[in-house]
Amino acid sequence: MPAIEVEALEVSFGSVTAVDGVTFSGEAGEVLALIGPNGAGKTTTVETLEGYRRPTRGTVRVLGLDPVADHHALVPSIGVMLQQGGTYPVMSPERAIRLFASYYDDPRDPDELLDLAGLREVAKRPAKRLSGGERQRLSLALALVGRPRVAFLDEPTAGVDPAGRIVVREIVAALRDGGACVLLTTHELAEAERLADRVVIVDRGRVVAAGRPAELVTTGEEIRFAAPTGIDVVALGTALGASVVEVGPGEYQVAVAATPAAVAALTAWLAAEDLPLADLRAGRQSLEDAFLRLTSRDAHHEPEPPR
C-alpha cells in the first residue's frame, strides 16, 4: 500500500480549478517534492491530503485512509507543517512542543526535538520574537512531535537561512530513514534536487513531469530544436522513428538520443519540407531548464485559490 495516493484529483473553488487531474503516489521511506510556480496547485493538493479540503473529483488516500472521512483515525499518524502560521505567537518553542506532545499517545521527547531543530538557545523565547527561519523550524518540529508516518511540509525552507536549510535537510533525511513518507512543496529547484528522491512538477493544476531529479535533468536522450510553429510532428516522428512533441510554440522535443545520425535525419527532413531551423540543442539540461521548459507559458498564472 502506498503511503500517499492521489488519483485524478480535481479541486475547484467556484469557477477556478486549482487542481485539474493530478495523479501521483508516494511510498514509505520516500521523500517526494511537489514543485511548480506559485498558483500551480501545490498547496491545494497538500491540503486535500491533510483533510482540509474535499476533492471535487478523484480520490486521495493517506495510509489507505480517506483524510476527511477517516480524519480521527488518520491524524495521529500525520505531521503537518502549514505554508504559514500555525503557532501561537505568545508561546515559546519549549512550551509549544510540550503542548503538542500532550496531544499524542507516544510523543517524541520535547528536549530532543528542541536540539534537533536547533531551537535550544531560543527555547524560552515567545514565537513572535523568533526570526522567520526559527519560526519555520519550530513549525517543522511541531510536525515531528507525534512520530508521523507521513509528513506534509508545505514550503519548509521558505525564509530559512543557509544554516537552517541544512537543519531542515537533515530532519527530512532522518524522517525518510525512519521509514516515513515525506511530501514537501517548494518552488526552489535546488532545494527539490537536494531534498527529494522524486519530484512531481505541477503547473496550472496539472502534473507536467515526474521522476527522480536525475531523470528529469540529464536525459541526453533528446534533441530540441526550434522551427516554425505547427509542423507535422507525426510525419517527422515517423521519419525519425521517435516521438516528437511541440513543447512550446515553435519549440520541439524529439525523444531520441542525439547521435549524429539522428541529427542528420532531422535536418534532412526539415530540408525536404523546406523548413528553417532556428535552434538545435542536444544533451544535458539542468533541472531548471527542464522546469522552465515544462512550466513556461504565455498565459497569465491562475490566481491562488481562496484560503
Binding site: L82, Q84, F100, G146
Partner: peptide
C-alpha cells in the same frame, strides 16, 4: 486571532482536533 494565525487550522490536524 488564533484563527488568523492558522492555529485553529493547525490544531485541527492533531489528535486534539
Amino acid at each position: 486571532f488564533e484563527r488568523g494565525w492558522g492555529v485553529l487550522k493547525r490544531l485541527g490536524a492533531t489528535p486534539l482536533g
